[in-house]
Amino acid sequence: MPPAVSGKYKQLLVVLVLNFSLSPFFDGMFGELLSSALLLYTLIVIVRTFSMRQQLLQLYLGIAISAFGLQTGLRLGWFSAEVLFLAVLIQVVYGIYLGVAVYLILRDILLCQQVTVDTIRGSICVYLLIGFIWAFLYGIVASLDAQAFSTSILNATSSYGEIIYFSFVTLTTLGYGDILPVSPIARMLANLEAIVGQLYPSILIAILVSNYTAEKLK
C-alpha cells in the first residue's frame, strides 16, 4: 500500500486542538454559535481528509450541515416544542459522524506501511476524537436524565465546555472528582472511556513501533 500523503492530518489536528482549547471560552449565545460553527468546520475538515466518491461526500457534508442547522436553531429557540428530541438527535448524529472518522483514520494508520510524522498526527487526532465522541455520549445521557451526574453538566441549549472537560478528565484517568457519574449508564460510559484511554495509546504505540521495526529490517 502506498505511504500516506504528507500532511494529511495536519489541518485536522490543528482544528481539533483549537476546538478542545477554546471550548471553555464559548459562553453565552454568541459563544455557543461560535462553538457550533467550529464543530461544523471540524466535520468538514474530517470529510476533506479522506478520498470519497462525490455522492458520498455530498451526503456526508449534508448530514453535517443539517445537524449544524438543527443545533443552531435549537440554541436560538426555534424548536421549543421538541427540545429534548432534537438535542438527543443532534448528539447522536455528531457521535456517529465522529465515530466513522475514528474508524477511517485508524484503518488508514494501521494499513500504512510507513510510520511518518503524519501517522503520529493521525493517531493523536483519533485520541482527541474519542474524547469528543464520549462527550456526546455523556450529553445524550445528561439530556435524558438530569440526575445522571453529580452536577448539571449539560442542558438542551448549553455549550459543551463542562462536558468536554469531564470527558477528557475521564479519558486521561485524571479523575479530579468535581464531577461524578451517578446513574448506572453514566458510570458504565465513564468506565469504558477510562479503559479506552489506557488501552488505546499502549496498543497503538506497540503497533507503530512494530511497523517501524519491520520497515527498518527490510
Rank of each mutant, 00 (worst) to 15 (best):
D118Q: 06
I96F: 14
F50L: 07
L86G: 03
Y94H: 05
I90N: 02
I153N: 05
D27K: 15
T42K: 05
L128Q: 06
A156E: 14
I65K: 10
Y94L: 02
L154G: 04
L34H: 00
I63S: 03
V126I: 06
G28F: 07
L59R: 14
F136N: 02
P24I: 06
F50Y: 06
A81T: 12
A142C: 06
S35C: 13
G73K: 10
F25I: 11
L128H: 00
Y127W: 12
Q58F: 11
R53H: 12
E82S: 14
F25N: 09
L106H: 14
L57V: 08
A135W: 01
P24H: 04
D145M: 03
Q54C: 12
G62R: 03
Q113H: 08
I46Q: 07
F85N: 07
V115A: 02
Y103N: 07
Y60K: 13
T157K: 13
Q114F: 11
F136C: 03
A148W: 02
V45Q: 14
L38T: 05
A101Q: 00
T49D: 09
F149Y: 13
L38Y: 03
L84W: 13
L128K: 01
G122M: 05
S23P: 08
S158H: 01
I90L: 01
L34P: 04
Y41T: 08
Y138Q: 01
F25Y: 13
L61M: 14
L76M: 12
G131R: 05
N155H: 15
V92P: 11
F26P: 03
L106G: 14
M29H: 13
I105W: 04
F132C: 01
L38G: 06
Q58K: 15
R75E: 03
L98A: 13
A156V: 13
F30P: 11
T157S: 11
A81C: 07
S36F: 07
L39T: 09
D118S: 10
D108Q: 04
R107P: 00
L40Y: 01
L40V: 04
V92T: 12
F30D: 12
S80I: 15
V102H: 05
R53Q: 14
I153M: 07
G73M: 05
L86K: 04
S66G: 09
M52A: 09
V92N: 15
F149V: 04
F85K: 11
G28A: 06
D27G: 13
Q114V: 12
Q91I: 02
T72I: 06
A81M: 14
L34S: 01
S80A: 15
S158P: 04
G31D: 04
G139V: 04
L40F: 06
Y103V: 08
V115F: 05
A37V: 02
F85C: 00
I90F: 00
Q55C: 13
A64M: 01
R75P: 00
Q71N: 14
G73A: 10
P24C: 06
S150N: 04
V115T: 04
L137R: 04
W134H: 07
A146I: 06
Y60W: 13
I96T: 09
E82Y: 14
I120M: 11
L59Q: 13
L104S: 10
A87R: 10
F25E: 08
I63A: 03
I109W: 07
V47Y: 10
L76R: 08
V88H: 09
G139S: 02
V126T: 01
A87G: 07
V88N: 02
L40D: 02
Q54E: 12
Q54S: 14
D108G: 07
L74P: 02
V47T: 08
Y97R: 11
L43G: 15
I124F: 07
L59E: 08
